[in-house]
Structure formats: C-alpha cells, structure tokens
Amino acid sequence: MTTTAPSRRRQHSRRFGDLGVALTFLLPAVLAAVLLRLWPTVRAVWDSLRSTALGVEPTHWVGFDQYSALLRDPAFLNSLKITLLFGIIVNPLQIAVALALAVLFNERIRGAGLMRTLVFLPVAIPQSVSAVIWAVAFRPDGPLNGFLTRLGIAPQGFLTSPDQALASIIVVVSWIGVGYWMMFLIAGLKEIDPTLYEAAALDGAGRWARFRGVTLPQLRRQLAFVLVADTISNLLVFAPVQILTGGGPNGRTNLIMNDVFERAYVRADAGAAAAGTVVVALIALAIVLVQFRLLSRGSD
C-alpha cells in the first residue's frame, strides 16, 4: 500500500481497514440477502432433512433419505441429463447471438435504438403470455408450419416431437433472453475507448481483426458477467416448460427446475422439493466456482 497523507489514520485502523464505513454501506444488502434468500434456504435444507414425504405426520429426522430417494428417482436423474444437454446448447447460443446483435446494434446505423428496443421487448411481457404466443406459433396448423408449407417443407411436430421439443423450448427461452443479455453487452461496448479502434484501423486491421483485437478483450468484464448470469438463469428456467410441454414428450424437456417446481407446488411434496432445491443450488455453486476459476486464470 502506498504511503500517503492520511496514512496515520490508516495505520491506526489497519487491522479493521474501513470496517465501520463498509458496514454502513453493506448492511441493507447483506440483510436482504441473508433474510430473504439464505434464511429460507436454510429452512429448506432443514425441511429436507426432517420432513416426511407426505407432510401429514409430525416431522421427524430423516437424514439424507430425501436425497437418496431423489437420486434414485429416474425422473429426477433424467431431468439432470436434460438440463445438462439444454445448458450445453443454450448458453453458448444465447451469448453468441447476444454478442453478435450487440455489435450490430452498436454500429451507428439509422434506427439502431428502436431495433434494440424491439429485440429487448419480449422480456417485458409476462411469461405466461409468451407461452400462449408460442403455443399458437407451434400449433400443427400454426403460422410456423404454415410458413414451412409455403416453402414446400412438411409440417413439423415442434413441441409434440421428442426430437424437436427441447430445441423448440430453446427458441422460446432465447427469444426472451437474447435481447436481455444483449443490453448488458451493448453497455460494455459503449465503454470501449474509440481511439483503440482508430489505432487498430491505422494499423490496417480489418473488421474481424478489430473485433478480435479490440472488442473481445475490452468486453471481457461484461462477457464474464453475462456468461455467469446467463448460465445461472438458464439453470433456473422453468416457466415456459411448465406451460408449454409440462416436461414432455417422454421427459425430453423436463428441466431440473420444472421437476423441482412440480414436486413443490403440484404434488406438495415439501421434503423432496427442498432436497431438489438444495441440489440445484449446489449445481449452480459448482458452475460459478468453475467459471470464476477459468475467468481468473484467463486474466493472468
């Protein structure tokens, strides 16, 4: 630490640093996080160790029974598999598209502001309405099939086909998500110093070279944020699935949160739902830890 004028005061409170100030700055947020997120989670963990499946009898200690039952349940294991497959496809896809659109709408073209607002708009309408719109779009006699027929392509099953249902869900989720993440990347692009581009251009760098040499490295922080946040939000997605397919056909779209949601709210199986929640949170934690490690290694 550099020694500057107020260094005496700093030395005096070296051990506690700016603790007093920090506390006042942090208190509301920490209180909110602890009381409104962590405490109910602790209650959920407690429930998962104590409650009976039926919730009828007085609760008693069941240890890890809920967890072992869950991890033996083929439906839950299938949902893990589907969630993994979904994540592997949807995350790179959304980030790549969001980045491409961010770069495009950051260009100084006429109407760019209106364009990006339109792309963002799907996130502003209730998910139940998005689901209704897409249920209609994917109907066997719906506009998508009508369009395909005009092109001479046979009608597709979309949500009713085991091979296309997950892809259809990815379309819906991305339609909502891409514009949202694009906004964060546009904010990042605005921060990039234009003289960097000028310098690169003077060096004779083309569009692609400038994108790789200037845009990507300068956008690192925003990209890292979008990577982490998008992965987590896709892990927790369930409303479109719940409304459009209920997890079918044949469990092909049964994302993990849909499974947990159904246990909690449809079957009222509080114990299994709590155990499922804990599993989801642990997966999220693992993902974030791995991402943090990779990102910090990348910055060296």
């Binding site: 099953g157 086909s161 209920g246 997890g247 079957r267």
Partner: peptide, 22 residues
C-alpha cells in the same frame, strides 16, 4: 385416494406422450 394428485400428474404426462406418438 390420498395419492390422487400424484396419480393424476403421472397419468396426464403419460396421456400426453401417448398422444404424441409413444
């Protein structure tokens, strides 16, 4: 039956899958 909710939710899914070609 006490198990109706679970029964219904399992069956409704089965019906959907059968409709979709299983």
């Amino acid at each position: 039956t006490t198990g109706f909710v679970d029964f219904e939710s399992v069956m409704n899914k089965a019906f959907a899958d059968i409709r979709n070609g299983t």
